[in-house]
């Protein structure tokens, strides 16, 4: 997509042109591909200076970005001494040098601590809200779910599904997890109401075909004791497995 790897077939265009045809590509597309792309003896500030020079960006821009990603204090230290999270932040600063409208980020959360991940989520959200296109590839599905507007699922190199999270989850039936010491009786009562019930633990049932309120109502009318009742979050992970399970067999 960025002209680094020759495709077996097909083309990718950004704003209608192939990446290699862009005159100042980093003005239009910023990319973070692997966080290890640094000379260990070069400082963070010098790293940005090198890539500012290639495209003629002012050094001031690098300072603003160092501040934004929180590396100003360590900017003169060699990158070799940076933590994985600091490298990730520096790579992000490098991608933003040209103030691009499109960002391509491969696993941007790798190596970030929980605070860093929250910071990254906020940053990506605000970049997207500015009207930018932010393309994130990740295998941390719960992380993606919290930031993404649209999701493309690729499994073994093939496109599986594409759409908003709501659209994708629509294909997966919501389930309810219920725990009860009288799981046996509850299962029978639920099945009588047309729900499909699976035994998922000694006193736990997974129910589909009824929502949490429905399951609770059945328990109440049958006078059965409940220890837990929760709608299973219809998260991306389940969508992913529901959509790709066939390929794994």
């Amino acid at each position: 997509m960025l002209g680094l790897v020759a495709p077996t077939s097909g083309t990718a265009t950004i704003g209608g042109r192939r990446y290699v045809e862009l005159t100042h590509p980093t003005d239009q597309v910023g990319a973070v591909l692997e966080a290890a792309s640094f000379h260990p003896a070069r400082s963070g500030r010098d790293h940005l200076a090198v890539y500012s020079t290639v495209n003629g960006y002012a050094d001031r821009r690098a300072e603003v970005l160092l501040e934004m990603v929180g590396l100003t204090d360590v900017a003169d230290r060699p990158v070799g001494g940076y933590s994985q999270g600091m490298r990730q932040r520096l790579a992000l600063a490098n991608a933003l040098l040209g103030d691009p409208q499109v960002l391509v980020l491969d696993e941007p959360g790798n190596g970030l601590d929980p605070e860093g991940i929250a910071w990254l989520r906020h940053l990506l959200r605000s970049l997207a809200d500015d009207g930018r296109t932010v393309l994130v590839s990740s295998h941390l599905l719960s992380e993606v779910e919290q930031v993404a507007d649209r999701v493309v699922i690729i499994n073994h190199g093939r496109l599986v599904r594409e759409g908003t999270i709501a659209e994708l989850s629509a294909g997966v039936e919501p389930r309810v997890l219920v725990r009860s010491p009288e799981a046996e009786k509850l299962a029978a009562a639920l099945a009588a109401r047309g729900a499909r019930v699976q035994r998922s633990g000694p006193d736990e049932l997974t129910v589909s075909g009824l929502d949490a309120a429905g399951v609770g109502h059945v328990a109440f009318t049958e006078d059965l004791e409940l220890h837990g009742l929760a709608a299973e979050a219809s998260d991306l992970e389940r969508v992913f497995f529901a959509l790709t399970s066939g390929d794994r067999a």
Partner: peptide
Amino acid sequence: TPTFLATP
């Protein structure tokens, strides 16, 4: 990588 991204 960043070098070729800046100069494809």
